[in-house]
Design a protein around this nucleic acid. Structure first.
Lengths: 337, 337
DNA sequence: GAAATAAGGTTAATCGATTAATTACAAATT
DNA sequence: AATTTGTAATTAATCGATTAACCTTATTTC
């Protein structure tokens, strides 16, 4: 069972493969191919179960209609949802998405970039790792369409889709303050990510403006040792004097692990300690108490990123940074058990 | 800034592109290319930042070193983790993974198959949708390497990686029985999936053997109306007479939505009603009570699927069905609040 | 009736990389 | 001296599809 190519069809019908190509691409109007032959070709293609070779086409036309998506870790709920939506929108516009994971490592990001370049992607959507600014600068200088999502390097002037990290974090921290917390902790990454830093800055500013900021209450954890570091951070916070009575978590992975750690330490969440989490999690809906969280407009982020990227691919060359608004969700306590 | 090809390097050095190709592929031993020239070529390639065109290579050699992964929905935790591990193992073996979502729709699965075939994937890993047996049969007959994961069509004789759905479900249901439940419900899909049916069969058999099976306690929900149907199912179960005192959920999405519905209805989970869930969920770790669940060996499933597939791609042609063992996790109550 | 236009095709180059077959020497072997 | 072997490179066909340019023949137009 050998592969069916344009030539196979052409030969069986005794015509040239050029004609077959024209018909199969719908370019047989304006008297290029007779109605009669068109139909014969279409029928034969269907009959033979012809599947075009996209590789050959891409090679010839110099566009692959493929987008490289580079994210940290596809099994993370945030990135998984982002990837799903990006794929859906891309598909609607006729593009395929190749997904690469970096695991937050620069070397893996570098590898994925080269790998995807070799596969002739027409553009990139990237959630860049720490210290990837040089790599991004190189990419950007080579003029390949590029959009950053979730994170950015402001000094680099690359298209970016972000949320209002500072503002939403400020506002969310205010909520904790308004609930009466006097000694609020922040758990954030040690890593240097613009978006995480903005969240931290927002929280810190809210505390400062309320006159209750205490630098000792900021705990930094490492991505590679998330569980251990968060456990330690929580332990410190609850054994400090005075004990922390509110915590702002700056990312989804920190949030969920933070909550786990609190519970492990027999802390009565939302009673002993008020918390504020980043990103939605199924878990928050089944806890016996309300967990307020910051909900990112993932679908909109995906749509905007795809729109920006495809505009670039199709020739637009202005640089844009789109800031979408995250939402503070304070759902009521679901049950009383 | 035009693209750098083999020819660019060849021209700049005044040699043929064949020589450059040999060197860049490490085929310059056995006196094919002089050490001197080899080094010059390597240096020039690095200097020009040469990135090979994988499309051209694939076209020529007839292999794309690409695997098509077709799953239901990448934002689902189970599939997300599966995809991540499949990608990792594939990459280790030099393969790229193209991911497609079906949203459990046959038409979308059909589309993804053709789409990936057009992109010349060397093989498929698929979690097939309902009623996709004909499509799979066609694929299998066309001799393209193919491995099913999570689900299968036993009558089709296609390589499959599964878990011991029947046994683990039987055993898990026994646990509910041993806990003293006398009136156990099952919430499962209306859809006709072999793996889900096996789970259901396992649970039913356990109940029958204990002499407490009641067909009225089996509720079927639709994938497209999961929330609504589960709400309704739970409502029925808790208002039935006698009220259900234990529930077996057959998939992860059913489990998490089932728990949500229970809590919404003010049911004291693990007190009023014992439950048994499929698949791990962060949520289970932060609930104030122990939720036993069935943990699938996702990483092993991924590894096995990749191994089977690559064996096929490389010429092996025996058909195998690998059954991995799922684990019943009964973690102790984490906290007492 | 000559020139222009339209209809319905085909030819052949091309995208970038691979590789079997070939060439051209130089050195070694008989 | 003739032949074989080894080293170092090139030539040219090929993968499958696209498309500008070209070629026929038939039909209009002036």
């Amino acid at each position: 069972m050998k592969k069916i190519s344009l030539k196979t069809i052409a030969n069986e019908l005794g015509v040239s493969s050029a004609t077959v190509s024209l018909v199969l691409n719908g370019k047989d109007k304006n008297g290029r191919v007779s109605k009669d032959l068109s139909e014969k070709i279409l029928a034969k293609a269907a009959d033979l179960n012809y599947v075009p070779n996209t590789l050959a086409k891409s090679l010839k036309v110099g566009k692959s209609k493929t987008i490289g998506l580079i994210i940290a870790d596809i099994s993370n709920l945030f990135f998984g949802a982002l990837a799903l939506h990006i794929q859906t929108f891309a598909q609607q516009k006729g593009y395929t998405v190749l997904i690469g994971n970096t695991n937050e490592k620069l070397s893996e990001m570098e590898h994925m970039v080269n790998f995807l370049l070799a596969r002739q992607v027409d553009g990139f959507i990237i959630t860049p790792t720490e210290k990837s600014d040089n790599l991004l600068k190189r990419l950007n200088n080579s003029n390949i369409p590029l959009v950053l999502v979730d994170r950015t390097f402001p000094e680099l002037n690359i298209n970016s889709v972000l949320i209002n990290n500072y503002e939403i974090s400020y506002k969310s921290t205010e909520l904790l303050i308004n609930k009466g917390c006097k000694n609020i902790g922040i758990v954030t990454y040690k890593q240097d990510h613009f978006h995480v830093n903005e969240r931290r800055r927002g929280a810190v500013d809210a505390l400062k403006n309320a006159g209750i900021f205490n630098p000792d209450n900021v705990e930094e954890v490492r991505y590679e040792y998330l569980r251990e570091d968060i456990s330690a951070a929580i332990y410190k916070m609850i054994n400090r004097n005075p004990k922390v009575d509110g915590i702002f978590f700056t990312t989804n992975s920190i949030s969920i692990n933070g909550v786990k750690a609190l519970i492990k330490n027999d802390i009565f969440v939302q009673k002993d300690i008020q918390i504020m989490c980043f990103d939605e999690n199924d878990a928050f809906y089944i806890l016996p108490y309300a967990v307020p969280f910051i909900k990112q407009p993932i679908k909109e982020m995906a749509r905007t990123a795809i729109d920006l990227l495809i505009a670039q691919i199709e020739g637009d060359n202005k640089t844009e940074t789109v800031i979408l608004e995250a939402e503070l969700v304070e759902k009521e306590k679901v049950v009383n058990q």
